[in-house]
Design a protein around this nucleic acid. Structure first.
Lengths: 208, 208
DNA sequence: CTAAAATTGCGACCATAGTCGACTTTTTAC
DNA sequence: GTAAAAAGTCGACTATGGTCGCAATTTTAG
């Protein structure tokens, strides 16, 4: 049986996470060294690397909690019967505001989520999964309301919309957009394009 | 007049780039230290930082040449009168193959292109611009052939397609897709979705 | 031509992410 | 109960990206 060790492990892990939350919040990710983290958590440096592969992974774990919070917060606010576009817009903008609250924070998180390193893939995918399932729920309802084609795979619809969010986020980091308003506008346009389609024929029925 | 200094500058810069090309190609980006780079180029370490802000920026400069080559290569191959979807597919797959030829190489480049750090924004945008203009050309022709709606802003169409490419690339780095074939399939599906639109009504005319 | 100003070059130096091998504690097997 | 195995812990150490202040070179001004 393994009781004592498990307990300790959880405790140590929690201590590290507590230190991370404290220090990252206080001084930011970049200005917090792993040595400091270890000291604050009251453990050795290598102990930390026993629990996390890289400093970025600690950061992802730190984000996980917050993201849960943001999601449940957004879930509360959103109206599950509102038009699809509106729901997506709210979700993405909420996400955007959270992610870019701090410039570097958002970049590190985005980089690690979209192009994860081998070592952080697992954590990154955990978060992705949560994201996709939230999105999936919205989309499924939209399909049943006949707001979305039902002949497509859910994953590709999620992917499509998610892609548009990412590109807007990217434009923000490339400094193509400077204000939140521009972001909103771009997101609206792209969502409309996705719904209506880019080929000329796909739009004819709007004029009927 | 400033002749001597300019000449020297160009020479030094070239020496650094030559060293970068040699070492990055030989041992990869990660396994090449800046010290080594300096030694090979025959300059001091700080001299390098006088020409580039970060190690990643050297890498971007290194990529620039290669990307030019890839583009002109793709441009040669592509048939400017082929269906839009086909042209986009060829362009993106060509890009994908180049970028992921080496796993880490592609990740670093992608990260820096999509979510650039402040210091590398400029270089990153240089490359983006080139990319967008290549894309823009294809799209403009498609519009004039009436393969694309003409009531949209070019930038948002480019952005839309580019987004789909990025999400596929991301899925690759998340290990959602393991083979090039899966990538091709996903890209095809997403491009079709973008053309046809995701709303049910947008598709009706296909059945008329 | 000369001296001051500006630019460029240099490697020792610093900060810090991540590794190593020795030490301690817990579990397992008998 | 005991001893071997396994898991967990530690801080000194390594490797490396990036900075600093000073020295050398080039330009400019008179």
């Amino acid at each position: 049986m393994s009781g004592l060790r498990e307990t300790k492990k959880r405790k140590t892990r929690q201590a590290i996470m507590d230190a991370a939350i404290k220090l990252f919040s206080e001084k930011g990710f970049k200005n917090t060294s792993v040595d400091e983290l270890a000291k604050t958590a009251g453990v050795g440096k290598s102990t930390i690397y026993g629990y996390f592969h890289t400093k970025n992974e600690i950061f992802l774990a730190f984000c996980e909690d917050q993201i849960d919070f943001v999601f449940s917060d957004l879930a509360k606010k959103r109206d599950p019967d509102a038009p699809l576009k509106e729901q997506l817009f709210t979700l993405f903008m909420g996400q955007f505001r959270y992610v870019t609250k701090n410039y570097d924070f958002g970049r590190i998180l985005s980089r690690e989520m979209v192009f994860p390193k081998e070592l952080t893939i697992e954590k990154s995918n955990d978060i992705s999964e949560r994201y996709l399932s939230a999105l999936g729920e919205i989309l499924t309802r939209a399909i049943s309301r006949n707001e979305l084609r039902d002949d497509l795979e859910l994953l590709y619809i999620s992917g499509h919309f998610y892609a548009l969010y990412i590109i807007v986020l990217s434009a923000w980091y490339e400094r193509r957009f400077q204000s939140e308003q521009e972001i909103e506008q771009a997101l609206q346009k792209l969502l409309s394009q996705a719904m209506e389609g880019l080929s000329p024929s796909s739009r004819k029925q709007d004029m009927v």
